[in-house]
Amino acid sequence: MKDEIRKHMRKKREQLSESERKQASKQVARWLETLLKEDMLIASYRAFRAELEILPSAKGTWCYPRVLDETHMEMIVPDDFRRGRYGIEEPIGKSVDPKQIDIILVPLLAYDEKGYRIGYGKGYYDRYLKKCSALKIGVAYCFQKVADTWPHDLDVKLDLILTPAGITRV
C-alpha cells in the first residue's frame, strides 16, 4: 500500500507546473517565516523530485542532510554543495549535533492527521529524527494528506505539517 501511495504522490507532484510549484513554495516560505527566530539552527532539505522548495530565510543558521551510508545521514552547515548519492545536492561543510537543532523540516510523499509520514522508504529521516529534540515539521502540498500511513515502531511522529495553506499541529 505504501509503495502505491509513493508512486501516486510522486506522479501528482510531477504533474504540477513549475509556476504552481514556485507559488506553493513561496506560500510555504511565508508560513515558515512566522516560526523562525534569529538564533535558531534550522535543518532543511534540498528540493528533489518536485518537492516543495524551502527558501532559506535570513533568520537563523541553516543546515542540510548528507548521506553517510546505506542507513544514516548527518546535517551539515554548508560551505558549498555537490551532487550526492541519490542525485540530491548535499552540503560540504561542518557537521552539527542533532541535539542542537531547533527546527527540522522534513520532506515527505504523504502524511496523515496523526502526524506520521510516508517518505521514500529508506528510513534516513526517521533514524535521524530519533536523535533530535527539534520541532519536527513535515513539508507538503495540501494534496499529500492521506487517511492513514500505517506507521510502525520505527516511524517518528511529526509535530507540525506545513503546507501552502498553512501550519497544522498534529
Score class of each variant (00 low, 15 high):
Met1Tyr: 11
Met1Gln: 06
Met1Pro: 06
Met1Val: 11
Met1Asp: 07
Asp3Phe: 08
Asp3Ala: 11
Glu4Gln: 15
Ile5Ala: 05
Arg6Met: 03
Lys7His: 14
Met9Glu: 08
Lys12Asn: 11
Arg13Thr: 12
Glu14Thr: 12
Gln15Pro: 01
Gln15Lys: 14
Ser19His: 12
Glu20Asn: 10
Gln23Gly: 12
Ala24Tyr: 02
Ala24Thr: 02
Ser25Arg: 07
Lys26Pro: 04
Val28Asn: 09
Val28Pro: 14
Leu35Cys: 01
Leu35Lys: 11
Leu35Ser: 00
Lys37Cys: 04
Glu38Phe: 01
Asp39Ser: 13
Asp39Asn: 15
Met40Pro: 00
Met40Lys: 00
Ile42Tyr: 09
Ala43Leu: 08
Ala43Pro: 11
Ala47Tyr: 00
Arg49Pro: 02
Arg49Ile: 12
Arg49Glu: 15
Ala50Glu: 04
Glu53Arg: 11
Glu53Asp: 15
Ile54Pro: 12
Ile54Phe: 10
Leu55Phe: 10
Ser57Ala: 08
Ala58Asn: 13
Ala58Glu: 14
Ala58Ser: 15
Lys59His: 05
Lys59Trp: 10
Gly60Tyr: 04
Thr61Arg: 13
Cys63Ser: 02
Tyr64Gln: 05
Tyr64Thr: 04
Pro65Gly: 11
Arg66Asp: 10
Val67Asp: 05
Leu68Ile: 15
His72Asp: 13
Met73Ala: 03
Met73Trp: 08
Met73Arg: 03
Met75Tyr: 14
Met75Thr: 06
Ile76Lys: 00
Ile76Cys: 03
Ile76Gln: 05
Val77Ala: 01
Pro78Lys: 07
Pro78Trp: 09
Arg82Met: 10
Arg82Pro: 09
Arg83Asn: 02
Arg83Leu: 10
Arg85Pro: 00
Tyr86Trp: 14
Ile88Gly: 09
Gly93Leu: 08
Gly93Ile: 09
Lys94Phe: 00
Ser95Lys: 14
Val96Phe: 03
Asp97Pro: 06
Asp97Gly: 12
Lys99Pro: 04
Ile103Arg: 05
Ile104Asn: 08
Ile104Lys: 09
Leu105Glu: 01
Leu105Asp: 08
Leu105Thr: 06
Leu108Gly: 13
Leu108Cys: 13
Ala110Gly: 09
Tyr111Lys: 01
Tyr111Gln: 05
Glu113Cys: 14
Glu113Asn: 14
Glu113Thr: 15
Lys114Met: 11
Gly115Lys: 06
Arg117Met: 04
Gly119Gln: 09
Gly123Thr: 09
Arg127Gly: 04
Arg127Phe: 07
Arg127Tyr: 02
Tyr128Lys: 03
Lys130Val: 01
Lys130Asp: 03
Cys132Ala: 06
Ala134Ser: 14
Leu135Cys: 12
Ile137Phe: 03
Val139Asp: 09
Ala140Glu: 07
Tyr141Cys: 02
Cys142Ala: 15
Cys142Ser: 15
Gln144Phe: 06
Lys145His: 04
Lys145Trp: 08
Val146Tyr: 05
Asp148Val: 05
His152Val: 13
Asp153Pro: 03
Asp155Gln: 05
Lys157Ile: 01
Asp159Cys: 01
Asp159Phe: 00
Leu160Ile: 02
Leu162Tyr: 15
Leu162Phe: 14
Pro164Thr: 07
Ala165Cys: 04
Gly166Glu: 07
Gly166Gln: 06
Ile167Met: 05
Thr168Val: 12
Thr168Lys: 12
Arg169Asn: 10
Arg169Trp: 03
Val170Ser: 03
